[in-house]
Amino acid sequence: MIHPALFYSFSALTLLGALGAVAARHPMRAVLSLTVSLFGLSGLFVGLGAHFVAVIQILLYAGAILILFLFVVMLVESPETERMNIRNIWVKLLGIGFGAVLLRILWRVIGAGGEPPIAPHAVEGTVEAVGRELLTTYALPFEAASILLLVGIVGAIVLAKRKVT
């Protein structure tokens, strides 16, 4: 069980990072804020005993995917993309409205009772345990995910292929 002080600091890191990613006007800052958020999330995973997921979170998300984001931001950067400013006030209001409704519902959910009705199974988050589960219980979704990746690769190639005339 994670110490409450650690839990709250990691949660604060996650939330502030996410907030920064949404509020930042410069795409580069948004991506970097997202990195902070993902680090906080990874800390929370450690607290849950999901060590493997925590490491993968940092390796894959912070390490690979966000780097890719940064590359894209740097490569396509132009004066227009520099500032992601939603000018339409109605769009802003709509977003805030939806957020408020969701927050209100979540508030009720949290207020309804501390413990979840059924405690999830205690999981052992080691590489061995995750690997074992992936190749036994979750064999089918695991295999399906490989087809999913194939679709992603083929799709990316098809769309990136030079225009045929």
Binding site: I147, L148, G155, V158
Partner: peptide, 13 residues
């Protein structure tokens, strides 16, 4: 979830 993503990603392309 995996199955639904397989449909959607194929359709995106």
């Amino acid at each position: 979830f995996v199955a639904l993503e397989m449909i959607t990603i194929s359709f995106y392309v």
